[in-house]
Every structure is written in structure tokens, then in C-alpha cells.
Design a protein around this nucleic acid. Structure first.
Length: 672
DNA sequence: AGACGTGTAAACAACC
DNA sequence: CGGTTGTTTACACGTC
């Protein structure tokens, strides 16, 4: 009986494997082979934005960002048709369809760069172009600055000779200045817009003033708040400094997203005190600088950071003085605020888009597993199994055979920044991609770094049994473990191994016996297993899942997620969104994501292009899956490969009885 | 195509 | 007798 069932399952399993693995294969072969691992990003300077200089540099950043995007477009243009064809593939697992077609994000740029799609010459050209554009932007800024100074001078003169009689004259002058200022603004705006047009920025026709699209998820990351804080600091400052100029209602515009900024930008003398900020900036943390008497968003390094100012202020007091005198509420300040707002809006826009993209990616990844062959499944999860099974026998509509774990409802879209919960993200792809332990660093560091993740998410660790066994043994105080202890380590460390115990335990035993590197040592109370490092190192000098670059990365970088983090940071920086880096990077989840993405980058790329259409976010019917999962779950034993996952959520209770799990599980039934 | 590494299934033996 | 431990074989798959 068992045998029969076994064979049956086996066949099923094979089918499954074919399904998922086929894709995998493609992925692995394709992705990296053609691209170089990822050299340094050429656009280095772009990413260096310092938080402290955000205000000062935002305009530049935006310009750079636009440039990057623009360049990217050019790049695609440069490349032969072939290149274009390839692009989708380059976009990692994310289906092209999901991304806003007209926008090529810095991330994409980054990807392209990473894959070294560009030749050094091309990069050179791009750099030069960028520099030229930056120069142009700088010139523009300088011009702007000069104009401001001139204006200021004139204003001062006015004030100096402020005599009632001249009132009228002054007004006239002011008007002239204002016009001048307006022209300046327009110039700058035009510049920005032209960049946008060339580059991309999807600005809707009717909203020339930079439409701030509501964030897709409706939430603003703290970083954004921070940004807002900076943007609105001027406003706040005036309040705090006792300056009565109630200024502009900067916030409204941005916040109201859809409203054309022009109208809302109008000065609102009465608004200042009432939480306009509240709309989008929930918390008025913007006042935070008050807590630090001598720290001010507009002041740093002895210089006034008011856009285009850079006046040297010896101390904070003089800065305040300067702020009140030079940047009081007037047309100039208003105009500058407007510009700044636009900058912020741009950033927000970009943020929104990137968020969308992220969501799409997430969604896509979830969904992906359902796709039989193409899915590039990054993580080694097991979902594939499900698929196959469902595909073959499952319900007609088989919703979603999504491998997704129950816990990871695929409703990513609505989730916040932290969407990438451990459970959700990792349950994604199954494939059998394991890192050889040859590169010890990865396994140990990976496990260490993602310990919590593995403990909670039913993700198959990307390591071979041998590697894991070795790790378990090496982690023990005496470098030796009994079989049962090894089992315990597996179940303790990986949620994945809390299921299908029969399968993996058998595999463990099999590995222990099979590999010479595992030495059984008789002990007083039985036998323990130890590792023969020499033997272990000896065995298969293979590479990691076919991707040389991956190996390289692993070797050079400490933990394999490090590079990705770096890449992410670089990407973010290039996005001119330096703020993001701060908060997010510390998040372990991100590291996981990074790992996942990295894998995708390394192995899965090419593949995706075949089903780009499918992967669109919308296509995630899967979400409905969970409810059903139980049904499907009972999977085939084969699932072993990708088995587990489905049912329990990662976060589920760790208090499991692994043995019992195995026995009680429907799994057994499947077997039959 | 074949070798190799790996995972899975399973049969079997020895032991507790 | 049943479970665990350990060995071995067979097969499938992916990679090179």
C-alpha cells in the first residue's frame, strides 16, 4: 500500500517539480548569466544625498531623479530592439504590466545597471549627460538665487526708504518684483516639467502644478512625514519664533493630492495655526526641532539651508535672525515654498509609484507560484507542490492554488509599508535553490540574520539538508548531536520543518548516512553525529545554483543579504529619497526581502517575461485561496518539495508537536 | 548525454 | 510489537 501510494505521489511530485522547476531552471540560467552581478552603480553621486541636506538639495535631487529616469529611457532607446525586448525580463520578477508603463523608476535603472546591461561607454555617456543636466540645473538654481538676491536687495531698499509717500511706488516695484519672481518660478517649473516630459513623470494634463497623487496605500511612511516636516519647517518656524506672519498653507496642497497645487498654494494667512498639516501629516512632529533649540531643519553646518540661500550664520541666534529677516513671509519665500513643495510632491509622487511597484511585486510574487512554469520562485518554498497538485486534480477554478500560506493573505495592496511581512513574503516561491555550504558565511549568517523569519515563516531554507545538519551540529556546544537533537534543531529553527516530518526526517537520516562528512560517534548514551569539516569542504565544489555572480557576491559580502541592502540603499538614494533608508533598512524584514529579491535577481529574471501579463497585480485571485488551502493542503507527499507551507501560517504557534504534526497531518492521507 | 549533487520515497535491519 | 535509528537503493530533477 504504502509503496503504491508512494509511487503515485512520486509521480505527482514529479509533475510538480516539473512545473515549478522548469521555471526555475529558466530563471537560473537566464538571469544572471547575461548580466554581470552588479557592479557599482555608475550614478554614484546621486545617491549620496545627506539627510541633513535634504532641503537644500531636494531640487537637485529631483532633477537628478528625473535625469536618471530620462537616462534610463535613453538607455532603452540606445539598446537595440533586442534590449527592449529584454527589458521585461530585466525587471525582475515583477511583471511589467504591473508597473506604470510610462515610468521607469530609478530602481529599474538600478536593476539595469546591476545587470550591467550597459557597456562602460554607455555608462560614460549617461554620466556625462547627467552631469550636463545637473549643470544646467545648477545654473538655473544660481540664476534663481541671483534673482532672489536681487529681489531681496530691492526689497531692502524699499524698506529702508519706507516712507508713506513712496508707498505707491513701492507697491509698483513690488509688483514688478513679483512678476520677476513669478517668471523665475515659471522658468523653474518649466524646467522641471520639461524634465518630466522627457523623463517621465506622469503628470496628468490638467495638473501642471504637479499632481500629488494620493498614496496608493493611503499611508505615509514616517520618512515621508519627516520630509514633510522639513518642508513645512519654514512654516513652523515662523510660528515658533513668534513671527506672526502666518504663512502659507503649504500643506494643504500637497495633502489634498489631487487638487491642483496652484490654487492651494495661495497664501493663506489664517491657516498657519490650524493644523493644516493634519491632513497628510498626521502628527505635527514637525515641531520636533523645538525640542532641540539649536537644531533646525533649515540650519546646519553654520549655513542657512533655506533653498537657494546658504547664508552663513555664525550661530543659531544669528540664523534665527537671518531666517526672520531674510525669509519672512513675502512673495519670495512663498515662491520658494512653492518650489519646495513641488520638490516634495515629486518625491511623494515617486514614492507613491515605488510603493505601487512594490505592491505589484509583492502581489506578483504571491501569485506567481500559481504559474506553473514561469514563476521564478525565489525562496525555496514549497509552494510548487501545491500547484501541481491543484493543477492536476484540483478544483476547476482552483482558485489559487497559491502556495501562499494562509497567513499571508495576499492582500498586499492595502497594507502599509511593512507589507513585506515575513510570512507573506517568503511563502512565495518554491524552487529548489540551495546554497552550498561551501560558502559558510551565507548559511550561518543567513540563519542568524533571519532566524526569526525562519522560525515563523514556513519557508524552506535555501540550504541543503547536509548544510543544515552541519549547521545544527556546529551550533551545538560540543559540535555533536544525536539524531533527535538534530531533528529538534530543525524544528526549532525552521517553521518549515514542523510539517511533513516523515519526509524531512527521512532526508536527514539519509543525508547523515550518505555523506561522509557526517560521522557517527558512539557515545555513552547512544550515538551522536559530528561533522568532518574536511570531508564536508571536500564535497562538491559546486557552485551555487548556477549563478557565478551569486557566489561572488556571497563571498565578498558578508551576509548575502548585505549586498542587496546596499543595492536597495543605493537605489533609494538614487531615487533621491534618502529618507527612506533610515528607517527601513533596519528592519529585518527588509533584509529578508532583500534576500528574496536578490535571489530573484540572481536567478529568476528571465523567466518572468513570459508571463508578465499574468503577473499583474490584479490577477491575484489567489487571495481567496487560503480558505481553501486546507483542502489543497493535504497535498501530496511530494509536496515535500514544496510542501509545507500552505497550511499553517508562519506565525502560527510555534508550539507544535512536530511529531504529532506529521502524524496527524492530512499529509499522510495524501500519501495514500 | 552523462556525471554529479540533491531531495524524496522506501525497504530493511538493528536497537530500544 | 512498535518506534527510532541508521543504511541503502531507487528514482527524479537540476546543473554543468
Amino acid at each position: 500500500m504504502m509503496q503504491e501510494s508512494g509511487t503515485e505521489t512520486k509521480s505527482n511530485g514529479s509533475a510538480i517539480q516539473n512545473g515549478s522547476s522548469g521555471g526555475n531552471h529558466l530563471l537560473e540560467c537566464g538571469g544572471l548569466r547575461e548580466g554581470r552581478p552588479n557592479g557599482e552603480t555608475p550614478a554614484v553621486d546621486v545617491g549620496a544625498a545627506d539627510l541633513a541636506h535634504v532641503q537644500q538639495q531636494q531640487a537637485l535631487q529631483v532633477a537628478r531623479q528625473l535625469l536618471l529616469q530620462q537616462q534610463q529611457q535613453q538607455v532603452s532607446g540606445l539598446k537595440s530592439p533586442k534590449r527592449n525586448d529584454k527589458q521585461p525580463a530585466l525587471q525582475v520578477p515583477v511583471s511589467v504590466a504591473m508597473m506604470t508603463p510610462q515610468v521607469i523608476t530609478p530602481q529599474q535603472m538600478q536593476q539595469i545597471l546591476q545587470q550591467q546591461v550597459l557597456s562602460p561607454q554607455q555608462l560614460q555617456v549617461l554620466l556625462q549627460q547627467q552631469q550636463a543636466l545637473m549643470l544646467q540645473q545648477q545654473q538655473l538654481q544660481e540664476f534663481y538665487k541671483k534673482q532672489q538676491e536681487q529681489l531681496q536687495l530691492q526689497l531692502l531698499q524699499q524698506h529702508a526708504g519706507k516712507q508713506p509717500k513712496e508707498q505707491q511706488q513701492v507697491s509698483t516695484q513690488q509688483l514688478a518684483f513679483q512678476q520677476q519672481l513669478l517668471q523665475m518660478q515659471q522658468l523653474q517649473q518649466q524646467h522641471l516639467l520639461s524634465l518630466q516630459r522627457q523623463g517621465l513623470l506622469t503628470i496628468q494634463p490638467g495638473q501642471p502644478a504637479l499632481p500629488l497623487q494620493p498614496l496608493a496605500q493611503g499611508m505615509i511612511p514616517t520618512e515621508l512625514q519627516q520630509l514633510w516636516k522639513e518642508v513645512t519647517s519654514a512654516h513652523t518656524t515662523e510660528e515658533t519664533t513668534g513671527n506672526n506672519h502666518s504663512s502659507l498653507d503649504l500643506t494643504t496642497t500637497c495633502v489634498s493630492s489631487s487638487a491642483p497645487s496652484k490654487t492651494s498654494l495661495i497664501m493663506n494667512p489664517h491657516a498657519s495655526t490650524n493644523g493644516q498639516l493634519s491632513v497628510h501629516t498626521p502628527k505635527r512632529e514637525s515641531l520636533s526641532h523645538e525640542e532641540h533649540p539649536h537644531s533646525h531643519p533649515l540650519y546646519g553646518h553654520g549655513v542657512c539651508k533655506w533653498p537657494g540661500c546658504e547664508a552663513v550664520c555664525e550661530d543659531f541666534q544669528s540664523f534665527l535672525k537671518h531666517l526672520n529677516s531674510e525669509h519672512a513671509l513675502d512673495d519670495r519665500s512663498t515662491a520658494q515654498c512653492r518650489v519646495q513643495m513641488q520638490v516634495v510632491q515629486q518625491l511623494e509622487l515617486q514614492l507613491a509609484k515605488d510603493k505601487e511597484r512594490l505592491q505589484a511585486m509583492m502581489t506578483h510574487l504571491h501569485v506567481k507560484s500559481t504559474e506553473p512554469k514561469t514563476a521564478p520562485q525565489p525562496l525555496n518554498l514549497v509552494s510548487s507542490v501545491t500547484l501541481s497538485k491543484s493543477a492536476s486534480e484540483a478544483s476547476p477554478q482552483s482558485l489559487p492554488h497559491t502556495p501562499t500560506t494562509p497567513t499571508a493573505p495576499i492582500t498586499p495592496v492595502t497594507q502599509g509599508p511593512s507589507v513585506i511581512t515575513t510570512t507573506s513574503m517568503h511563502t512565495v516561491g518554491p524552487i529548489r535553490r540551495r546554497y552550498s555550504d561551501k560558502y559558510n558565511v551565507p548559511i550561518s549568517s543567513d540563519i542568524a540574520q533571519n532566524q526569526e523569519f525562519y522560525k515563523n515563516a514556513e519557508v524552506r531554507p535555501p540550504f541543503t539538508y547536509a548544510s543544515l545538519i552541519r549547521q545544527a551540529i556546529l551550533e551545538s556546544p560540543e559540535k555533536q548531536l544525536t539524531l533527535n537533537e538534530i531533528y529538534n534543531w530543525f524544528t526549532r529553527m525552521f517553521a518549515y520543518f514542523r510539517r511533513n516530518a516523515a519526509t524531512w526526517k527521512n532526508a536527514v537520516r539519509h543525508n547523515l548516512s550518505l555523506h561522509k562528512c557526517f560521522v557517527r560517534v558512539e557515545n555513552v548514551k547512544g550515538a551522536v553525529w559530528t561533522v568532518d569539516e574536511v570531508e564536508f569542504q571536500k564535497r562538491r565544489p559546486q557552485k551555487i545554483s548556477g549563478n557565478p555572480s551569486l557566489i561572488k557576491n556571497m563571498q565578498t559580502s558578508h551576509a548575502y543579504c548585505t549586498p542587496l541592502n546596499a543595492a536597495l540603499q543605493a537605489s533609494m538614494a538614487e531615487n533621491s529619497i534618502p529618507l527612506y533608508t533610515t528607517a527601513s533598512m533596519g528592519n529585518p524584514t527588509l533584509g529578508n526581502l532583500a534576500s528574496a529579491i536578490r535571489e530573484e535577481l540572481n536567478g529568476a529574471m528571465e523567466h518572468t517575461n513570459s508571463n508578465e501579463s499574468d503577473s499583474s497585480p490584479g490577477r491575484s485571485p489567489m487571495q481567496a485561496v487560503h480558505p481553501v488551502h486546507v483542502k489543497e493542503e493535504p497535498l501530496d507527499p511530494e509536496e515535500a518539495e514544496g510542501p509545507l507551507s500552505l497550511v499553517t501560517t508562519a506565525n502560527h504557534s510555534p508550539d507544535f508537536d512536530h511529531d504529532r504534526d506529521y502524524e496527524d497531518e492530512p499529509v499522510n492521507e495524501d500519501m495514500e
